[in-house]
């Protein structure tokens, strides 16, 4: 039976179950809005490691191990690990997986990687290629900052549209059977580039990709936005979120009542994060913490989770290229 729907979507025939999740965050995230939804909060951004990159790897390793333990499983039960991060050559994921010893596929979708790994994980499970998959991502503010922007001790003034990369990692165990919310459908995004060139304005660059994926999801699956209790995008920040609402308004659809962006949920206003949070971990820590808990408590029954990624590189923006962006959606229902 063909599970493809419309142009870009998939409807799973035996929807995989998200049986457990785990997350870990840095100190600044710990002081934000969602403190009670994190499994572990680090006291500093190194956590005893010699470098930020190593700290990020350790966070991912911890998140994967904890998610597997919470699932009452052992690592040997895991058929595949799908993981990614923001650093060049997926440095954090590769070093984190060194200690895991399970079949691994590395993914790069920038900040959309959590949704991408959940989407592909579900496909593996629904396709009967395995029984348990771990989807995991990480990002680290300081490591990302020095790769993409300035040294962290450099005295620069960040523009108001800039977002703050989240330090943290999130992992989810997706199983063929078990208790928990199910991934019922997914939409694979396509690259959308609106010609924005300012690497500080990633949320606004990604907003059209998010809107495009949402649009196709509704069209392919024959659903209205109000089918979902909540629609969450990954890390568009306050400006990107407003732009998504505007783009839908132009099409005559009102999203404002059941739509939120994970990047607007993490930091408090006085934390000086400007337009909100970003990074792979932005969507991951909100999903594996807050959203998953609400799904388990049945306070949310239908959620559309949309990971959003800006696929530019440090070379591309120095060569004055615009930012190609992508968004992937997974529908999760209890």
């Amino acid at each position: 039976m063909n599970k493809k729907r419309g142009q870009q979507s998939i409807i799973f025939s035996s929807p995989p179950v998200i049986t457990s999740t785990a997350n870990i965050v840095g100190p600044m995230e710990g002081e934000g809005h969602l403190t009670e939804f994190y499994d572990k909060i680090l006291e500093d951004t190194l956590d005893g490691n010699p470098s930020w990159e190593k700290c990020e790897s350790k966070m991912m390793e911890w998140a994967i191990n904890t998610a597997v333990t919470k699932d009452n499983s052992i690592l040997a039960d895991i058929d595949y690990v799908l993981a990614g991060d923001l650093l060049n050559q997926l440095m954090s994921a590769h070093f984190a997986l060194r200690g895991i010893g399970r079949p691994f596929l590395g993914l790069y979708g920038a900040c959309s990687t959590m949704a991408e790994s959940m989407l592909l994980g579900s496909t593996l499970i629904d396709g009967c290629f395995g029984n348990k998959v771990v989807a995991a991502v990480s990002s680290h503010h300081d490591a990302a900052e020095r790769q993409y922007r300035f040294p962290t001790e450099q005295g620069v003034q960040r523009p108001m549209v800039a977002q703050w990369t989240v330090t943290g990692s999130g992992a989810a165990v997706i199983s063929a059977i078990g208790n928990g919310p199910r991934i019922t459908a997914a939409t694979v995004g396509k690259i959308v580039d609106m010609g924005l060139k300012d690497p500080n304005a990633m949320g606004p660059a990604m907003a059209p990709a998010a809107a495009d994926t949402l649009w196709h999801h509704f069209e392919d699956c024959g659903r209205q936005p109000n089918y979902y209790d909540m629609i969450y995008t990954g890390d568009l920040g306050s400006v990107g979120k407003a732009l998504v609402i505007e783009l839908f308004k132009a099409k005559g659809i009102d999203l404002s009542s059941n739509y939120e962006d994970c990047g607007c949920m993490i930091f408090k206003d006085d934390q000086d994060a400007h337009a909100g949070a970003s990074g792979c971990a932005s969507s991951a820590i909100v999903f594996t913490g807050y959203i998953y808990k609400l799904l388990m408590q049945q306070k949310l029954r239908r959620v559309l989770f949309v990971g959003t990624g800006s696929l530019h590189s440090t070379t591309s923006y120095q060569q004055k290229d615009s930012m190609p962006c992508i968004a992937h959606a997974v529908a999760i229902e209890t």
Binding site: M160, A201, P204, S238, V239, E246, H274
Partner: peptide
């Protein structure tokens, strides 16, 4: 779109 962005830019 870029015009819209400029309007909403903080």
């Amino acid at each position: 779109y870029q015009e819209k962005f400029e309007q909403l830019k903080p």
